[in-house]
Computed example of a mutant assay.
Amino acid sequence: MKRNIYNKVIGCVVLATMLSGCYDDGVEGDSYYVFQGQTVGDYLDADGKYGEFSTILERAGMKGLMYAYGDYTCFAPTNEAIDRYVDSNYPGCTLETLPDSAVVALAKSHLIGVRYLTSDFSTGYLQKPNMYDRKVQVTIEKEFDAAINDSMTVFVLNDYSRIIQANDTVSNGVVHTIDRVLEQSSYVLPDYMQSKCETLGFTLFMEALKQTHLTDSILREKDESPGMLSRLAQYASNSEYTTEGNKVPPARKFGYTVLVEKDNLYKTVYDPQNMGKPVYTGDLQADLVSLFNYAKDIYDKVYPDDKGVYDDDYTHPKNPLNRFIAYHILDRNASYGDLVCSTPDWSVQEGGDFVEYYETMAG
């Protein structure tokens, strides 16, 4: 499969994102202040608006880390942001009565073990996951600000949390103040896609994904087979291996990327067995047949020996619709900015158009 970096795709991990460069920062309070001698912990202690977040860090056993040597990014929610989160998700609870699991998730979700200034951001996902082992999504937008009669850059994290004060640099990292708690999805990919398909408009693709049962192929999170667990334990216990600086991951994780086609796109594609009728009309079951016919027109020519043999079983890997949907799935995580690894200097000097090739789950 040839995938050009300039093609627009709707990725599963990204679901809706476009490649973007870094912007000049324009959020309020974004002055790259350096707080001499202060740590992240000191910075949070110095302002009462972070009091509830500090309490969460203390309960989770993470506060001491914020005074320690290192390089951290702290997305610090205000007291109001935490109150809103607790009221919405744990009605009747206080910070003292929140479940321990929720406290740990809250603390770790807002900390990353490297320093990220907003000048390091681009639309997509931060490369390093947070301490809760989730990647933080970044959306960069432009908004008109009437007060300054000009547009300003807005950084939104995980769809809802807006940075309202950025790049407060301290001795062991940087603090970005956010107006909403960073909520982490516990969905597996098919469930996440199902939750988004209506609002993002890919209902037909989602239905085809379910009807082909390819949802079952993108459920696994980590390899817990006895063989893999044995191999990981073997490497971890090999002092000769680890003393040479090699790191053993705690688990072998699975990742998937789905290149989703939206309903609006199918409105411009015509059913080959009924020219003039678009693949997508809003009648989901009829549209599924149209999408099957569209796929059949492609794959009957590519695989003539299979023509008509598997048409009645959408779940068979040689069924045209199954092949079509599987062609949109990669068995690896690929945020938009990760799809092509390139050398920017070469691109500028030589005018290179970078291309990468991936084998999909269609083979």
Score class of each variant (00 low, 15 high):
residue 223 D to F: 01
residue 216 D to I: 00
residue 228 M to N: 12
residue 234 Q to W: 12
residue 247 K to W: 03
residue 231 R to C: 09
residue 222 K to N: 13
residue 235 Y to M: 11
residue 249 P to I: 01
residue 230 S to G: 13
residue 227 G to E: 11
residue 234 Q to F: 14
residue 241 Y to H: 02
residue 245 G to W: 01
residue 226 P to R: 08
residue 227 G to W: 02
residue 224 E to I: 15
residue 240 E to W: 02
residue 234 Q to I: 07
residue 240 E to Q: 10
residue 236 A to S: 00
residue 217 S to M: 13
residue 233 A to M: 05
residue 238 N to Y: 01
residue 235 Y to E: 00
residue 237 S to R: 06
residue 222 K to D: 15
residue 220 R to G: 10
residue 220 R to A: 14
residue 245 G to R: 02
residue 217 S to A: 11
residue 249 P to F: 00
residue 225 S to T: 14
residue 232 L to N: 04
residue 225 S to A: 08
residue 236 A to I: 02
residue 224 E to M: 12
residue 245 G to Q: 01
residue 220 R to T: 06
residue 246 N to D: 09
residue 239 S to E: 05
residue 242 T to S: 00
residue 249 P to Q: 08
residue 236 A to F: 03
residue 222 K to M: 15
residue 217 S to P: 07
residue 218 I to P: 08
residue 233 A to D: 11
residue 215 T to S: 10
residue 233 A to P: 02
residue 227 G to D: 05
residue 246 N to W: 01
residue 223 D to H: 07
residue 216 D to P: 10
residue 221 E to V: 07
residue 224 E to W: 05
residue 229 L to C: 07
residue 219 L to Y: 11
residue 232 L to F: 04
residue 234 Q to R: 15
residue 221 E to Y: 14
residue 225 S to P: 13
residue 247 K to D: 01
residue 235 Y to T: 00
residue 225 S to L: 06
residue 219 L to C: 10
residue 247 K to I: 14
residue 229 L to S: 06
residue 247 K to M: 04
residue 236 A to P: 04
residue 216 D to F: 04
residue 221 E to N: 13
residue 239 S to R: 04
residue 217 S to K: 13
residue 239 S to I: 00
residue 243 T to C: 07
residue 247 K to V: 11
residue 243 T to L: 02
residue 249 P to G: 06
residue 229 L to K: 05
residue 215 T to L: 08
residue 218 I to N: 03
residue 235 Y to R: 03
residue 229 L to V: 12
residue 233 A to N: 08
residue 216 D to T: 14
residue 239 S to G: 02
residue 239 S to T: 04
residue 241 Y to S: 03
residue 228 M to W: 07
residue 248 V to G: 00
residue 244 E to L: 03
residue 248 V to H: 03
residue 219 L to E: 15
residue 227 G to A: 10
residue 247 K to L: 09
residue 219 L to K: 12
residue 217 S to T: 08
residue 243 T to H: 08
residue 231 R to N: 10
residue 222 K to I: 08
residue 227 G to R: 02
residue 228 M to A: 14
residue 230 S to F: 13
residue 242 T to Y: 01
residue 233 A to Q: 05
residue 248 V to S: 00
residue 220 R to L: 11
residue 223 D to T: 13
residue 240 E to A: 08
residue 216 D to N: 15
residue 226 P to Q: 04
residue 232 L to I: 06
residue 249 P to M: 03
residue 218 I to C: 01
residue 219 L to W: 09
residue 219 L to A: 13
residue 222 K to T: 09
residue 238 N to P: 01
residue 244 E to N: 10
residue 241 Y to A: 00
residue 224 E to R: 14
residue 223 D to G: 11
residue 236 A to C: 04
residue 243 T to A: 11
residue 231 R to V: 11
residue 237 S to P: 04
residue 228 M to Q: 14
residue 223 D to Q: 15
residue 225 S to E: 05
residue 216 D to H: 09
residue 243 T to N: 12
residue 223 D to N: 15
residue 234 Q to T: 13
residue 219 L to H: 06
residue 228 M to H: 07
